[in-house]
Amino acid sequence: MQKTALISLVFGVISLFLSLYGIFFGIIGFVLALHTLRKAENRERTGKGMAIGGLATSVIGAGYQIVAILILVLTA
């Protein structure tokens, strides 16, 4: 369970810094974080903090990329 939480956190951080591809990494990190959080509710709480961090960074990274693309499209 800690592996998927760590991977979601890594994908969330990557989504903050990559342009255009950050959306895809953000979506993957979001899905992995939700999967980890659902599994953590049923079992012990290992990896729950990393999953929350992955969820937050994925949402921020993907949202930032979507806003950046919208600005580029609307100003072109």
Rank of each mutant, 00 (worst) to 15 (best):
L55G: 03
G53H: 07
F11C: 06
G47N: 07
T75P: 00
L18D: 02
I69F: 05
I60K: 01
S8P: 09
V31W: 12
T57G: 05
Y21K: 06
I7P: 00
S58K: 02
Q2I: 13
T46G: 12
L34G: 00
K48C: 00
F30N: 03
T57A: 05
F17V: 09
A68Y: 10
F25S: 08
Q65M: 13
G54I: 14
K39D: 02
A56H: 11
E44S: 12
V59G: 01
T57K: 01
I7M: 05
L55M: 11
R43H: 13
T4D: 09
L70F: 15
V59N: 00
G54H: 00
T36A: 08
L74S: 12
G47Q: 12
G54R: 03
G49E: 15
A40V: 01
K3L: 10
L37Y: 02
E41D: 14
F30D: 04
F30M: 12
K39P: 00
I71L: 15
A40S: 10
K48I: 07
F30G: 06
Y21F: 15
E44A: 11
A68K: 07
V31M: 12
G61K: 01
L16W: 02
Q65R: 05
R45L: 06
K39A: 03
R45Q: 07
H35D: 07
G29V: 11
L6W: 02
F24L: 13
Y64P: 01
V59A: 09
A76P: 12
I14G: 01
T46W: 09
A62N: 04
E41C: 13
G12C: 06
L72N: 13
S15I: 03
A51H: 04
Y64C: 15
T4G: 06
S15A: 14
L55Y: 09
Y64H: 14
L16E: 02
T36R: 03
E41H: 13
A51G: 02
F30V: 11
R43G: 09
I14W: 05
